[in-house]
């Protein structure tokens, strides 16, 4: 069960990386970033999973709790990722205003 979740996370990470490397549309680049981030977060969250575990909440009912530490990492990383994506979209709006396009091949300001 566990290896499937790890494998899924890595596949999502790689799809995100492929999107960034291959797509020429700036919005798709940002979608790729989000996918990569989602992959990493899935990996971290699933690493805290304990088979048959209960939520690590007080008052404690008994049974084996899942590891709550990865969840707090995930929350921190989500906040950071949201800041990155928001900033990227703000940059894209600025770039679109200048060039009237979001195609990376037509934005030639810094090439060469």
């Amino acid at each position: 069960m566990l290896p499937i979740s790890y494998g899924t996370a890595i596949v999502v990470f790689c799809i995100g990386l492929y999107t960034i490397l291959s797509k020429r549309n700036l919005f798709k680049t940002v979608i790729g970033l989000s996918l990569m981030e989602g992959g990493v977060l899935m990996l971290i969250t699933s690493s805290g999973y304990v088979p048959g575990g209960v939520p690590a909440l007080l008052p404690f009912a008994g049974g084996e709790p899942v590891n709550p530490l990865p969840h707090s990492f995930t929350l921190t990383a989500i906040v950071i990722g949201a800041a990155d994506v928001a900033l990227a979209l703000a940059f894209i709006i600025k770039i679109h205003r200048r060039y009237g396009t979001v195609d990376i091949d037509k934005i030639r300001g810094l090439r060469g």
Binding site: L33, L43, L87, F91, I95, R98, L110
Partner: peptide, 30 residues
Amino acid sequence: WQAIEAGFKYLIFGTVGALFLLIGIAYAFM
């Protein structure tokens, strides 16, 4: 405009780098 484009490029590269860092840290933690 040049600075905005350079900032965007830096953002894409920097975020990809940060995600590689994060996945490395996640594996070390696991």
